[in-house]
Amino acid sequence: MKVAVVVDSTSYLPTNILEKYDIYTIPLNVITNDEVYKENEIDNSWYYEQMAGSDELPTTSQPSIGDYILLLESLYRDGYTDVLSFHLSKEISGTYQSAISASTSVEDINVHVVDSQLSCAPLGFLALYAAQNKNVKPLEALLDDLEDMRQKENLNAYFLVDNLTNLQKGGRLSNAQAMIGGLLKIKPILEFIDGKIVAVEKIRTQKKAMSKIEAKLAEDFQVHKGKKITACLIHANAPSLAESYIEELREKFEDVTFILQEFGPVIGTHLGEGAIGIGYTVYDIDVSDF
């Protein structure tokens, strides 16, 4: 048995990690100024400039089934018998369903498609755990671990956006929620609930919203006191804010390992520039190379 790990590009795992652990990426696409780009092939800074200067919000699309089939056929030729394939929540993207459809088109390779019910860092944590354990644990035991790991109490994330405009335009939140956000000038805290993006708190200022996220994290972490917790702060073209905030979090949660990442074009499009998120897992993963 030879197991490959595949994750879609919204995990935003750095290149050195993908290469070290032989993690394969299937990219989503962004469409701006009538041009289609695979999100792992364009520079984040360039893209955020394009988005800021565009009159219309860029759009995003899932990987084509054809691209996924080509990847699976390549893995089969390389001797892989099984594929663990991780994707952002099926409630906000058709990527998961594309993976399911592609898996039925390639014979002689077993594809195990996992709906993370989240995106970004938590999605990457699932893929990283699988890659670090695929040669250590039997496949069935690893699949059981992954099913448990993706449960909300073991893998969760909070997001803070500057406003709800992009989410509303992209159809990821209701018009009513977006209208309320605009009228009140709030800083919404978002969470994935049953795979859907939900505004769980509506705070008036960014500072108060960040403090509220810290309080939520403190409550979550207390439940898992004594476990090795890994968390990621991820930002949308807001490095100064992210670097300042992560230092605060490291001081407050000394027993938690924090890493820093940036939202790529797909998720950055929907959350908007200036958004930040914090995802964490209580499963043991090695992030020393980040």
Rank of each mutant, 00 (worst) to 15 (best):
D8L: 10
L18H: 08
K20L: 10
T25Q: 03
P27V: 03
N29C: 05
V30N: 06
T32Y: 09
E35V: 01
K38I: 05
N40P: 00
W46C: 12
Q50K: 15
S54T: 09
L57H: 08
T59H: 11
S61H: 03
G66A: 12
G66R: 05
D67P: 03
L72W: 04
L75W: 07
L75P: 03
R77G: 08
D82M: 12
S93Q: 09
Y96N: 01
S101T: 15
T104F: 04
S105K: 15
D108P: 05
V111N: 03
V114R: 04
S119H: 01
A127C: 08
Q132W: 05
A141S: 11
L142W: 11
L142Q: 06
L143F: 10
E147S: 10
D148Y: 07
M149W: 06
N154V: 11
L155F: 08
Y158V: 14
N166Y: 11
Q168W: 13
G171L: 12
N175C: 00
G182Y: 07
L184A: 06
I189W: 07
L190V: 15
E191Q: 14
F192P: 03
I193L: 12
D194H: 04
G195H: 06
V198R: 00
E201T: 00
K202L: 09
R204E: 04
T205K: 14
Q206A: 14
I213A: 10
E214W: 05
E219L: 13
I229Q: 03
T230R: 07
L233P: 01
A238L: 12
S244D: 10
K252R: 14
K252C: 11
K252F: 02
V256K: 01
Q261E: 15
E262P: 04
F263C: 10
P265L: 13
V266E: 13
V266T: 14
I267A: 02
G268K: 00
L271K: 00
L271F: 14
I276Y: 00
G279R: 13
Y280T: 12
T281W: 03
V282Q: 00
Y283S: 10
V287F: 08
S288Q: 05
